[in-house]
């Protein structure tokens, strides 16, 4: 079951976890990372939708099922989230973001203030620097760059039952999804655009200081894309600004939602219940 919302004149796809939107329920928005889409949250969204929440797992503009221009900066992504909530008629929501999506969620939370009830940053870092070689490869040789990203994201060759059920080869699923997302936008290389947006984002600590809600950092203990140490600055900034901060270390790399679906769900569920 899905919602299609028009935002800034373009259709936006929201996966709702198999449940119709119900204005009486609280809403949680899931924001994917570079070269991903809503489906990476399969084993978190469907559960939340069946346990009291409206779920809006979006395809970012210019990605897969959503039209519009793919965000070129984190700030553009944050503007989109605000516009999307307005278009959906959602006054208050929790934001959950992964990787690039975590930066978009954080910046959006800073801009939207009290409209955001919870902020969950999965696999985050600030600054989220991307190596020049990888940025270049994402345009010159996307297949090679995708392979690099998926190798660095992986923490195991034996994932538990994952997004496609038991028998999912998470590495292959990551490669196939990357190819599909890239192919979905013939006008723009969303791979390189997303990486540049991560790399150039400079407002992290300032954004964190403005956030008005509790923050959960869900970090992969073995994450090589966004290592836990790269989130420490943000965690310190949040604590220094007096935010309510929780930090969970998941036994996984950068594929938190697909290689540790149960642990990621538990962290999310418990945090959102508070």
């Amino acid at each position: 079951m899905t919602m299609h919302i028009e935002v800034n004149g373009a259709p936006v796809y929201c996966y709702t976890g198999g449940k119709a939107f119900d204005a009486a329920k609280p809403t949680v928005v899931f924001i994917h990372g570079v070269l991903n889409d809503h489906s990476v949250w399969a084993l978190q969204t469907r559960y939340m939708a069946n346990h009291g929440w409206n779920v809006l797992a979006i395809d970012l503009p210019g990605h897969c099922r959503s039209g519009g221009n793919a965000p070129a900066t984190v700030e553009e992504g944050a503007d989109f989230i605000g516009a999307m909530l307005d278009a959906a008629g959602v006054q208050r929501a929790a934001l959950v973001g992964h990787s690039w999506g975590s930066l978009i969620a954080m910046e959006a939370a800073a801009r939207l203030g009290e409209r955001i009830s919870h902020l969950v940053l999965v696999g985050t870092a600030f600054p989220m620097k991307v190596s020049p070689a990888l940025i270049e490869a994402s345009a010159a040789d996307p297949e090679k760059a995708m392979r690099m990203v998926n190798v660095f994201s992986r923490s195991t060759l034996a994932a538990p039952p994952s997004a496609l059920g038991p028998g999912t080869w998470v590495f292959g699923a990551g490669m196939a999804l990357g190819r599909k997302v890239l192919r979905s936008n013939p006008a723009v290389n969303v791979f390189q655009r997303g990486f540049i947006a991560c790399d150039s984002y400079a407002n992290g600590e300032a954004a964190m200081a403005q956030i008005a809600c509790p923050v959960l950092f869900a970090l992969g203990a073995h994450d090589q894309m966004t290592p836990p140490k790269a989130a420490q600055g943000l965690i310190k900034a949040a604590r220094a600004a007096g935010k309510k901060v929780e930090v969970v270390h998941l036994p996984v790399g950068h594929n938190q939602m697909t290689e540790a679906p149960e642990e990621t769900l538990a962290a999310l569920r418990d945090f959102l219940a508070r």
Binding site: L157, A158, A159, P161, L164, G165, P166, G167, T168, W169, F171, G172, A173, M175, A176
Partner: peptide
């Protein structure tokens, strides 16, 4: 069975198997 499915999917370069 899930180990076998992941293994063959990995060797074939697929997303999963049954």
């Amino acid at each position: 069975n899930a180990v076998l499915e992941q293994r063959v999917a990995a060797l074939e370069g697929g997303v999963g198997a049954i």
